[in-house]
């Protein structure tokens, strides 16, 4: 059973926590030992959020070690750019092309890095970068909050596991009235 370490990075309010919960439950259904660690800062909205999800035969630490991340799932460009040191050499980087400027940028006191700059810093870790317009896709589906499930759809292609297993967990973990929308969002991501 191959060990898989997945790191999610985003901004509070983007749905990172729900996505990491779904990913952990899928791992358990697929027969892995699973651990998950997350840190959400003091702010309810707008702060940095990181979530570590680890699947393996036996997982000790809930926190992933530097150089061990197999997949980086970036919900926001700047937050994704911070993790190059954590990537394995052949890590897959799935990154949402979406910017949420931090306060200093809004105030004109710092510059938001360009797509090229974020790509170049991540490439010191791994060359394997996949840009996804997940927020755009979620908006087209009618709800920008679906971004996490779109990204899970993309991720599912790299992780394996039957479509039914993924969809079953998603249905279990979202309120009934959002099940259809979440299913659509997952499948939209999976088709990319």
């Amino acid at each position: 059973m191959k060990k898989v370490d997945i790191l999610m990075a985003g901004v509070g309010g983007q749905g990172t926590i729900l996505a990491s919960n779904i990913l952990s439950e899928v791992g358990l259904e697929l027969g892995y030992d699973v651990k998950k660690a997350e840190v959400h800062g003091m702010a309810q909205r707008g702060g940095t959020v990181e979530s570590h999800v680890r699947w393996g035969e036996k997982v000790y630490s809930p926190v992933i070690e530097q150089g061990e991340v197999d997949i980086l799932l970036g919900f926001e460009m700047l937050e994704s750019g911070r993790w190059s040191a954590y990537l394995k050499k052949d890590a897959v980087i799935i990154i949402n092309r979406y910017r949420i400027p931090p306060p200093a940028v809004n105030l004109g006191k710092a510059r938001y890095p360009s797509e090229e700059e974020i790509e170049s810093t991540l490439k010191s870790g791994s060359q394997n970068i996949l840009w996804i317009n997940a927020t755009e896709i979620a908006k087209e589906l009618g709800n920008p909050a679906m971004v996490g499930v779109v990204l899970l759809g993309v991720l599912s292609k790299h992780l394996g596991g039957a479509e039914d297993v993924w969809l079953g967990v998603i249905k279990r973990m979202v309120p009934p009235k959002f099940q259809e929308l979440n299913t659509k969002a997952f499948l939209a991501g999976r088709q990319i």
């Binding site: 702010a43 909205r45 702060g47 911070r82 931090p102 890095p113 810093t121």
Partner: peptide, 14 residues
Amino acid sequence: PAPVELPIRPPILC
């Protein structure tokens, strides 16, 4: 890593 300055994202009021 390429020397890119990544601005910090401190917690803020919603």
